[in-house]
Computed example of a mutant assay.
Amino acid sequence: MRMAVLIASVLVAGCSSTTGGQPDRIEPIPPAPSASAPSGTTTSSGGPTPTAAPAPGAPIDGVLAWIEAGAPADVAAYREATREGQVTELGQDVAFTTPSGKTTCMTAQRADGALACLVDLLDPPPRPADAYGEWKGGWVDYDGSSVTVGSVHGDPGRFTAGEGPELPYGQLLSFGDFRCRSDAAGLFCADSANRSAVKFSDAGIEPFGCLQPVSAPPQIGERFQC
């Protein structure tokens, strides 16, 4: 019996490694820190959303992200236009005006919902030699895949109804495939389906994305096409 106790004591002592008479402690391995995603809004390409209005030639991802970052406006408030105190309900169309009053825009379902804007351009395109009728150098049509600047109109067309409510700076108006954000630098509108965008201001019309200058058709001042 004494022999069995002695053998057990030897085995226990052999299994316990000591340092300075104390058993070694096994320190736990700390877990690897988890990677955290950076905060803030990013563009579809992974970059941060620009805080300033897009400059000429800005990448379309940044332009779209900046427009989308505007404060959403209630589209129902822009379904009417006013002319000389008379209000016209526009149904599914929208109308709005920039705070500066230099750009007023309206859609027309009879034109597939395309956006037309009257812009008080400082330097509108000159009247083409083949144009006949009343020339409106600041009439801009934007359907998402093309932009025309300057055209002939014998009457106010869709603007017979007047002007829409003011779209305050920093606010975003969404309708169909279009997104429009008002800014002190100008009105920026984009078409999500075509990934194109346009800046409207009295300084000129600035295209973004796939829109490139092309030869203007008869009775048109300038044209940009995807």
Rank of each mutant, 00 (worst) to 15 (best):
residue 1 M to C: 11
residue 2 R to C: 14
residue 5 V to F: 15
residue 7 I to H: 12
residue 8 A to T: 15
residue 14 G to R: 04
residue 14 G to S: 13
residue 16 S to H: 13
residue 16 S to V: 15
residue 18 T to S: 12
residue 23 P to S: 14
residue 24 D to S: 11
residue 25 R to L: 10
residue 31 P to L: 12
residue 37 A to Y: 06
residue 42 T to G: 05
residue 43 T to I: 07
residue 45 S to A: 08
residue 46 G to L: 06
residue 47 G to L: 10
residue 47 G to H: 12
residue 50 P to R: 01
residue 53 A to H: 03
residue 55 A to D: 02
residue 58 A to S: 11
residue 59 P to Y: 04
residue 62 G to H: 08
residue 65 A to K: 03
residue 67 I to F: 10
residue 73 A to C: 13
residue 74 D to G: 14
residue 75 V to P: 10
residue 77 A to R: 09
residue 78 Y to G: 01
residue 80 E to K: 09
residue 85 G to T: 07
residue 86 Q to M: 14
residue 89 E to D: 13
residue 89 E to Q: 13
residue 90 L to C: 04
residue 92 Q to Y: 04
residue 93 D to K: 03
residue 95 A to W: 02
residue 100 S to G: 15
residue 102 K to A: 14
residue 104 T to A: 08
residue 109 Q to G: 12
residue 112 D to C: 04
residue 113 G to P: 01
residue 114 A to K: 08
residue 116 A to M: 10
residue 116 A to K: 10
residue 117 C to G: 08
residue 118 L to N: 13
residue 119 V to N: 10
residue 125 P to I: 08
residue 126 P to S: 12
residue 131 A to M: 01
residue 132 Y to V: 13
residue 133 G to K: 02
residue 134 E to F: 05
residue 135 W to N: 00
residue 137 G to T: 09
residue 141 D to M: 12
residue 142 Y to Q: 03
residue 142 Y to R: 05
residue 145 S to T: 12
residue 145 S to E: 15
residue 146 S to P: 09
residue 149 V to Y: 13
residue 154 G to W: 00
residue 161 A to K: 11
residue 166 E to I: 15
residue 167 L to Y: 06
residue 168 P to E: 05
residue 170 G to T: 02
residue 170 G to Y: 06
residue 172 L to H: 08
residue 173 L to D: 12
residue 176 G to T: 00
residue 178 F to M: 05
residue 178 F to N: 00
residue 178 F to S: 00
residue 179 R to E: 09
residue 179 R to M: 07
residue 180 C to N: 04
residue 183 D to E: 10
residue 184 A to D: 04
residue 186 G to N: 10
residue 187 L to M: 09
residue 189 C to G: 02
residue 191 D to V: 02
residue 194 N to A: 11
residue 194 N to C: 01
residue 194 N to T: 09
residue 200 F to W: 10
residue 207 P to Y: 08
residue 208 F to N: 03
residue 209 G to N: 01
residue 213 P to V: 06
residue 214 V to H: 03
residue 215 S to Y: 07
residue 216 A to H: 10
residue 217 P to R: 15
residue 220 I to F: 08
residue 220 I to T: 15
residue 221 G to N: 07
residue 224 F to L: 11
